[in-house]
């Protein structure tokens, strides 16, 4: 029952993304949108992606929903990170992030790729909040796997 873990989760970066999210809005011309639910608390988030399907590049990402500070900050960091990345890179980053939250150690290079989102690593030691940190990324995976299915069906 130590104080360090819980308090350190709420880092300055996290608090800033929570208080002033840059990417919390409905994306009118989204190519894809998907609802994600955090089963542990019932929180809902909608993730929007604008994808150029010729180049396979994510041009814009945003989210909406009433969620906790960890979910909100994680979503905001993710949206910023995805902008301008290819679908393949988004999948790789998602794998890195979820792996990190599940307790995998990341190389310094991988941490650099996740940028601020790598700061959420300490949440891996708080099982009750893992789902909060993952919510946006799992919702992203939902979009990407549906997209894969659609493309395979064509």
């Amino acid at each position: 029952m130590s104080n360090s873990t819980t308090t350190s989760i709420y880092s300055a970066a996290l608090m800033d993304h929570n208080a002033h999210p840059d990417y919390k809005y409905e994306l009118e011309d989204a190519t894809y949108s998907h609802d994600g639910i955090n089963a542990s608390c019932g929180d809902e988030m909608t993730l929007y992606l604008k994808v150029n399907n010729d180049t396979n590049v994510i041009e814009e990402a945003s989210f909406t929903g009433h969620v906790c500070a960890i979910s909100q900050a994680s979503a905001d960091m993710m949206a910023g990170l995805l902008e301008g990345e290819s679908i393949e890179e988004a999948k790789r980053l998602s794998g890195l992030f979820i792996g990190m939250i599940q307790g995998n150690e990341l190389s310094d290079e991988d941490k650099e790729d996740l940028d601020e989102a790598a700061e959420l690593q300490s949440i891996s030691r708080m099982p009750a909040r893992v789902k909060c940190a993952e919510l946006a990324w799992r919702t992203l995976n939902g979009i990407l796997s549906e997209r894969d299915k659609e493309l395979a069906g064509k």
């Binding site: 029952m1 104080n3 360090s4 873990t5 819980t6 308090t7 989760i9 709420y10 542990s40 608390c41 019932g42 929180d43 009433h66 969620v67 906790c68 500070a69 960890i70 708080m126 009750a128 909040r129 909060c132």
Partner: peptide, 22 residues
Amino acid sequence: GVHPHDVSGILSGENVAIRAGH
């Protein structure tokens, strides 16, 4: 303006155990 899970998470850091959720 603060989500109950954040409240209970931060309170936990202060050694206070309360319930948050539905």
